[in-house]
Amino acid sequence: MIQTKDLAYTYTGGASIVFPDISCAAREMLLILGASGIGKTTLLHLLGGILRVQQGNILIDTTDISSLSGAALDHFRGQNIGIVFQQNHFVEALNVLENVLLAQSLAGRSINKEKALKLLKRLNIDHKAGQYIRNLSQGEKQRVAIARALINDPKIVLADELTSALDDDNCTEVLHLLQEQAHHAGSALIIVTHDTRLKDKIDRKVILERP
């Protein structure tokens, strides 16, 4: 589903990183491990179409996203890529359900309230659907973020330090939920983290190291 080739990035300061080639099929799971400052976030932003590709290619399904730009890239990202961040931000003026519906709307999909509620239910957060984000705990926010990332059945789901802020119990639960829902949606799941607790829970891994 996703395949990178000769991906490299040069920062404005001049430092550059060369990334190993990565591939992940639909319903597969890949862990990208690395210490802080190794370029994990840069890689995630490249894969997520947030950062323009400077060198190399990223093929998502049949589209080379390094060839997309501007509105086309925004549109592609909204439809095909779901991202869960470590620190998730939401639209404060909207409640939980509305934040999920916003993701449908911004991706250009028609609003499907029933689908959103079902997804929230599978993530055990449907009882908070009418709540505002500021009233939610960290773990609850993480689940809403997962719902928002998965609502459009994206081809790729990217998770950045998904579990770093969570305790062991929550870590296991959230990972499990994300796996389950990504599988349900038929997405390729890539988790980028320095959280070594995940090491034994996922088989396929890529480890980023300093050259």
């Binding site: 509105a71 925004d74 990202r77 639209v91 993701a103």
Partner: peptide, 18 residues
Amino acid sequence: ERRYELAIMRVLGAGRVK
């Protein structure tokens, strides 16, 4: 104050025009 919100909206597919 809403710059993170706006960034997230972009991640979710909102173009600059929006």
